[in-house]
């Protein structure tokens, strides 16, 4: 009982750190697409891993921590609002999809990626008061699908390693 709790706590800590590193690495890689909001979403690897290895509540906590810490260390208020909008929509969508039967990690991760981009667009529309930004939505949907597939596969690999350690 206690070992399990300790184990989960440590794993959450490690994966939060991993998510932060991913966020940071991502922020220093320039993406050659001139559209605000297009991101690789690498940090989602850690979030999906927590979601499957530990649980929904922990995944929300790790995601919120990741967003707060990354914004405080490397970002500003604007980037915080954008990640928060995207991150929250994405995590709750993923939890919902995981609860529904029949989706694999790839489907869950695709939903997460797409919702993350939708959240960012909504935040952008709200902050700038211009709905013209929504014109980027189709591109962001496709980008979310592509990155979501890749991230789902990688998260599956991470999960295998985590489970291997827990045994």
């Amino acid at each position: 009982m206690y070992t399990q709790r300790t184990n989960n706590m440590v794993m959450c800590g490690i994966l939060t750190a991993l998510a932060m590193i991913f966020s940071y690495v991502e922020s220093i890689i320039p993406i050659p697409i001139p559209i605000p909001g297009v991101k690789l979403g690498v940090a989602n690897i850690a979030i999906v891993a927590v979601l499957y290895a530990i649980g929904s509540a922990q995944a929300v906590v790790v995601n919120v921590l990741r967003i707060f810490l990354t914004a405080m260390l490397f970002g500003n208020l604007n980037s915080f609002l954008f990640s928060m909008a995207g991150g929250m929509l994405s995590i709750f969508g993923m939890i919902l999809l995981k609860k529904m039967k029949g989706f694999s990690m790839i489907g869950v991760s695709v939903a997460g990626g797409v919702l993350h981009n939708i959240g960012q667009i909504l935040a952008a529309v709200w902050i700038m008061g211009s709905s013209a930004i929504a014109y980027y939505l189709p591109v962001l949907l496709i980008a979310g699908v592509l990155t979501g597939i890749v991230i789902g596969i990688v998260a599956g690999l991470v999960l295998q390693r985590i489970r291997g350690r827990q045994r």
Binding site: F103, I106, G107, A111, L141
Partner: peptide, 24 residues
Amino acid sequence: MKKKDIYLIGGIVIAAVIFFMIVH
């Protein structure tokens, strides 16, 4: 990858195309 995953991905891609056409 399961069947529902493919439906989900297909649905999103179709939505993106429709949205693009509406915008355009």
